[in-house]
Amino acid sequence: MQKKINRKLSDIQISGIRQFFNMIGQYEDVVSLTIGQPDFSTPDHVKNAAIDALQNDRTTYTHNAGILELRTAISNYVEDSFALTYDPLNEIIVTVGASQAIDITLRTIIEPGDEVILPGPIYPGYEPLIKLAGATVKYVDTSQNHFKLTADLLEEAITEKTKCVITPYPSNPTGVSLTKEELRDISQIIRDKEIFMIADEIYSELVYDQDHTSIASFTEIRDHVIVINGVSKSHAMTGFRIGYLLAPEWLAQQILKVHQYNVSCATSISQYAALEAIKNGQHDPKVMKNSYQERREYVMNRLDKMGLEYIIPDGAFYIFPKFPSEKSTFEAAVDLVEKAGVALVPGSAFSSYGEGYVRLSYAYSKSTLEKGLDRLEKYLKG
């Protein structure tokens, strides 16, 4: 019977991040700086909104695209924050996390034989969804270009089979963002081509040295762009599983068909919690962002003293330093766990273009970061 399973799954493995995280569970006294999980509690007013939804029996199916109040709040938020205009009635879909938004978008636009361009190193969650949708992945090596996908690199990678480009900025694992000018240059490449662009902007509230610019703000490519976002990182609501996508009406209504048969609708209680977060929790991300920025400065200071090279991260809560070792990055990361009791994600989890690097998440308390970096420093000296 095993031969009857979908053959596309044979080449798909559990995420390298999760594989490594699960593996280190067998070791005692390990400081893990691996997972991109905010260490803040969900704000009390958001939790109370979820409780209120339960007590008032808001536990039934909602509109497939999500409750209109939430879609309206999202519309107002993206217009105020990023100058994006999307109609809450027919251009916004509330999803089960950003991951489901990416999945249903790919299943809407992808056909067998298509190619999807990914800038490597990159979060490993995209490639399996692309393959399951029937397309192939074409990586662009950004490791020699400050981990940025540029217009020149993109133009060189495009072929007649290219159906979609994914731009995940701020980036997981590198923390790098693109400037408004760099995004404008990319938009000029896309504007005259029949190519979609999925802009994964889940970390848009966590940008430190510049304002976040959405590529969808360039109106000439609006019909090409699907924006993915959510409340997981901005409001410490990972378990609520609420994301959303923004797309022109003609495309959003096709994606809605896939969404409808996939999950019917996002969880009603979580939707009301997200409504409270977006409508009345504008200050919440700022508090978290300020703390992450302090941690970023601390981590960079420590890495500088250790002599480790890195590109300064200007978003998210990751840093991606080069790791000096003659071993593979995975072997070096295991050695680090075994000999020093500190865990960093091997860069190879983020495609072959991450080899030679490790990802450190600073979404941890200052005391945890200090303890982990002390151990890392001792390991490197030894």
Rank of each mutant, 00 (worst) to 15 (best):
3 K>D: 12
4 K>P: 00
5 I>D: 08
7 R>Q: 13
18 R>G: 07
18 R>W: 12
20 F>E: 00
22 N>K: 10
23 M>K: 11
29 D>L: 11
34 T>C: 14
36 G>F: 04
37 Q>N: 15
39 D>I: 10
43 P>Y: 06
45 H>Q: 13
49 A>F: 02
49 A>K: 01
50 A>W: 03
53 A>D: 03
53 A>Y: 06
55 Q>F: 13
60 T>I: 12
64 N>K: 13
68 L>K: 14
68 L>Y: 15
69 E>C: 10
70 L>C: 06
71 R>A: 05
71 R>W: 01
74 I>F: 00
74 I>L: 04
75 S>W: 01
77 Y>A: 03
82 F>H: 08
82 F>M: 09
84 L>D: 00
85 T>I: 14
96 V>M: 15
112 P>L: 07
115 E>M: 08
115 E>T: 08
117 I>V: 12
118 L>R: 02
118 L>H: 02
132 L>E: 09
140 V>L: 11
140 V>M: 08
141 D>T: 11
146 H>W: 11
147 F>E: 00
150 T>E: 08
151 A>H: 09
153 L>I: 11
154 L>G: 01
158 I>Y: 06
159 T>F: 07
160 E>D: 13
163 K>Q: 10
164 C>F: 04
167 T>S: 13
172 N>K: 11
173 P>K: 05
173 P>L: 07
173 P>G: 08
174 T>E: 06
176 V>M: 07
177 S>D: 11
178 L>M: 10
178 L>D: 01
181 E>W: 07
183 L>W: 02
189 I>Q: 08
197 M>S: 08
197 M>Y: 09
198 I>V: 11
203 Y>Q: 09
204 S>H: 07
205 E>M: 10
214 S>Q: 02
218 F>V: 05
228 I>T: 02
229 N>G: 09
235 H>Q: 07
240 F>V: 14
241 R>S: 14
242 I>A: 02
249 E>A: 15
250 W>A: 14
251 L>Q: 00
253 Q>C: 10
264 S>Q: 15
266 A>V: 11
273 A>H: 04
275 L>D: 01
277 A>N: 00
277 A>Q: 02
283 H>E: 14
285 P>W: 02
286 K>C: 08
287 V>Y: 12
288 M>A: 11
293 Q>P: 03
296 R>H: 06
297 E>H: 14
299 V>R: 03
299 V>G: 00
301 N>S: 15
312 I>C: 13
312 I>V: 15
314 D>C: 07
314 D>G: 05
315 G>P: 04
316 A>P: 02
318 Y>W: 14
320 F>H: 01
331 E>N: 13
334 V>M: 11
335 D>W: 04
336 L>H: 00
337 V>H: 03
341 G>M: 05
344 L>N: 02
346 P>D: 04
349 A>G: 07
355 E>L: 08
357 Y>K: 06
359 R>H: 08
359 R>M: 15
367 S>R: 13
367 S>D: 14
368 T>P: 03
369 L>H: 01
369 L>W: 00
371 K>P: 05
373 L>F: 05
376 L>I: 05
377 E>T: 10
